[in-house]
Amino acid sequence: MATLYQIHSTMDTLRRSTNELALTWRAGDSILLLGATVAFVDWLNAYLGDADIEGITGIYALAEDVAQLSTTTTSQLKLNAKLTALLTDGEWVKLTQDTSFDKVVTIAL
């Protein structure tokens, strides 16, 4: 079984959030970026590398959160290449109830 980590973090706390995630990370786990955290996806990927976090099954974001970003920011981030999927609220709920996850952990520092 795997864990779905939900990260809601500012740029100032993203490294600390990634370090917290690394404490219990197992290959096959996934990450859901909440709120403005999706705007820091490049930093997240760098921090994941620093923490030697490997075997990520998926990195997701909520479509509603991405819609809050400016068109320029969204274009520059190239999220299609960095995210497994953008989720609607219904898809998010379904993902958290997916039987492939034995737990959902929210990290909000």
Results as ranks from 00 to 15, higher is better:
11 M>V: 07
45 N>I: 06
83 L>Y: 01
70 S>Q: 08
11 M>E: 14
87 L>F: 10
58 G>Q: 10
71 T>R: 13
59 I>S: 00
8 H>M: 13
38 V>N: 05
92 W>H: 13
104 V>P: 01
82 K>G: 02
31 I>Q: 00
52 D>N: 12
24 T>Y: 03
78 K>N: 13
50 D>H: 10
53 I>Y: 00
87 L>S: 03
40 F>W: 14
35 G>T: 04
11 M>G: 04
46 A>Q: 12
46 A>I: 14
70 S>D: 15
82 K>W: 06
82 K>H: 04
64 E>Q: 13
20 E>K: 04
109 L>I: 10
7 I>L: 15
71 T>P: 04
40 F>N: 15
81 A>R: 15
40 F>K: 07
19 N>H: 11
44 L>M: 05
73 T>I: 12
88 T>A: 09
55 G>I: 01
2 A>F: 05
14 L>G: 04
35 G>H: 05
79 L>C: 09
55 G>S: 07
97 Q>L: 15
51 A>Q: 09
97 Q>C: 14
24 T>E: 12
16 R>S: 13
61 A>Y: 03
69 L>N: 08
103 K>A: 12
9 S>T: 07
71 T>M: 12
92 W>D: 09
84 T>G: 02
20 E>T: 08
107 I>F: 03
33 L>Y: 02
40 F>L: 09
18 T>S: 10
89 D>Q: 11
55 G>R: 08
81 A>M: 11
12 D>G: 10
19 N>W: 01
43 W>D: 10
8 H>G: 14
66 V>Y: 03
30 S>A: 14
92 W>C: 14
68 Q>R: 15
7 I>G: 02
98 D>Y: 08
94 K>G: 08
77 L>T: 04
36 A>R: 15
52 D>Y: 08
38 V>S: 09
30 S>E: 10
108 A>N: 13
88 T>L: 11
27 A>N: 10
78 K>S: 11
100 S>Q: 15
61 A>V: 07
7 I>R: 00
62 L>Y: 03
53 I>C: 03
107 I>V: 06
84 T>Q: 09
69 L>Q: 07
32 L>R: 01
91 E>W: 09
77 L>Q: 04
7 I>F: 01
92 W>R: 12
42 D>N: 12
107 I>M: 09
96 T>W: 11
6 Q>N: 14
82 K>A: 03
76 Q>H: 11
8 H>F: 12
79 L>R: 13
48 L>N: 02
34 L>G: 03
80 N>V: 13
69 L>G: 05
2 A>I: 02
16 R>I: 09
98 D>H: 14
83 L>I: 12
31 I>S: 01
104 V>G: 02
36 A>I: 07
64 E>I: 08
40 F>V: 00
71 T>K: 12
56 I>F: 03
63 A>N: 11
7 I>V: 13
89 D>G: 08
5 Y>N: 08
